[in-house]
Nucleic acid binder design. Structure first.
Lengths: 232, 232
DNA sequence: CGTTGGATTGACGACCCTCAATCTGGGTGG
DNA sequence: CCACCCAGATTGAGGGTCGTCAATCCAACG
């Protein structure tokens, strides 16, 4: 139970979120403005489809997935979210969430109510906010390009390389990737069937390019993965 | 040459952009804050990959496309943008644009510099801004789901239905869709080859579901198109 | 030890990507 | 005015990949 004066100052993600540009006193001010982070366990829902939307969310630690159900009843995993990433904006269109957010692991998230945004704007978070929005759109664009890749192996390779890049920006190692995601969810997110993903993983594992376990992926030959990513 | 006091008040898109919630005096104030819209002709570049990013853009009339070139030299059409839609945020990540924006037709666009954003926040545009961001993420999500559709016919059907929905929200008819896009660009955007798209269009035209010309699409049997969209 | 859910592997068929030829319409120049 | 050209669009043939259906395997758990 750290008090509010130092909470943001001690946050491991403070260089990657709205606090990116703040100095010590700025961090204290931000801590005072915001409610304490929300703690969640694996499988906990942060919000569900149809909940009233009054805030946006920033991942502090752990990982989240968001998913939607389309008109014809199909479930789609629309994104995985790691520290420093913003999500939950879709709800602002209609005032209720259009997706469901679930913690993939022990996680924490900072909730920013819409009423608090003007205050943040004056607290030196304006540039950081735009930057987060830009990174969000960039990520969405890269995912779009990934999904128009016709071959399943290329899609997986691109996804893993993008995941490595996300981890690199957080200052983590890029040879062991943190990915607490089931095969089913990953296949769904990458736009392929569970079987197709399983085959690709088997093939690439046998070839010695990577090793996938429940929670982490080891990239053994990044160069060959990059070749795969670029070959149509 | 309308003067700044009435410019936004006369804009046909004022109910779909940042000015959404403003009354007459609010519209006057907004007109005074912003520079006049930028006029472009078909094929004109609004900005190019690598240009310095100092503003975001809102479509006032016409249509735009954005495209990126990936590391391996492939060109990808990342989006089509219609009145009331915001684009050009990716550049805020690094300070230079990561994509290129081109007018698809005679078009106009409102440019909002980052320095002007705090002023807009105080001018009653805050909720509208969040709403535009939410709509943007919603659209990105829908496109993601579209692209994970395995069959080409379903992808086209979903795209056309989403286009109809966009037009409906602008108060236009949904049986004739405005789409000033080449086959090549559309195929690229939908993640398939030119040939595959051509075949699908031929097939659906022969079946009497739709009629596609250079600039517009006629949806002749919406119900059957919806069936196609939902059938995996 | 049996059950259960997730993951893997196999066989088959449909769809799409690739390569290639043909067709169409608009613009230019002789 | 017509022949030519060129880019975009259409159509065709063949092969590879993935989706589907189904059986099997595996580990965790009661």
């Amino acid at each position: 139970m750290t008090d509010s004066r130092s909470r943001c100052g001690e946050c491991p993600t403070r260089r990657f979120c709205l606090a990116r540009d703040l100095d010590a006193s700025g961090l204290d001010r931000l801590s005072a403005l915001l409610a304490p982070p929300i703690q969640l366990s694996r499988g906990d829902y942060l919000y569900r489809f149809g909940d009233r939307t009054s805030a946006l969310h920033l991942v502090r630690s752990g990982a989240f997935k968001t998913l939607t159900v389309t008109a014809d009843g199909e479930e789609h995993v629309t994104g995985f979210h790691f520290p420093g990433e913003i999500f939950g904006l879709t709800g602002f269109t209609t005032g209720v969430h259009e997706d469901t957010a679930m913690a993939l692991d022990t996680s924490s998230v900072c909730r920013v109510h819409v009423d608090e945004l003007p205050g943040l704007w004056g607290a030196g978070c304006d540039v950081a906010f735009l930057r987060l929005l830009g990174e969000k759109e960039s990520a969405a664009t890269r995912l779009r390009i990934l999904l128009s890749e016709p071959r399943a192996a290329s899609r997986l390779a691109v996804f893993l390389l993008q995941l490595a890049e996300r981890q690199r920006r957080l200052g983590r190692t890029t040879d062991v990737l943190y990915l607490p995601v089931s095969r089913t969810d990953l296949a769904n997110h990458l736009g392929m069937t569970l079987e197709a993903l399983s085959r690709v993983i088997s093939r690439l594992s046998r070839a010695g390019l990577l090793a996938m376990e429940r929670m982490e992926v080891r990239v053994l030959r990044q160069a060959e993965l990059e070749t795969l990513a670029g070959s149509r």
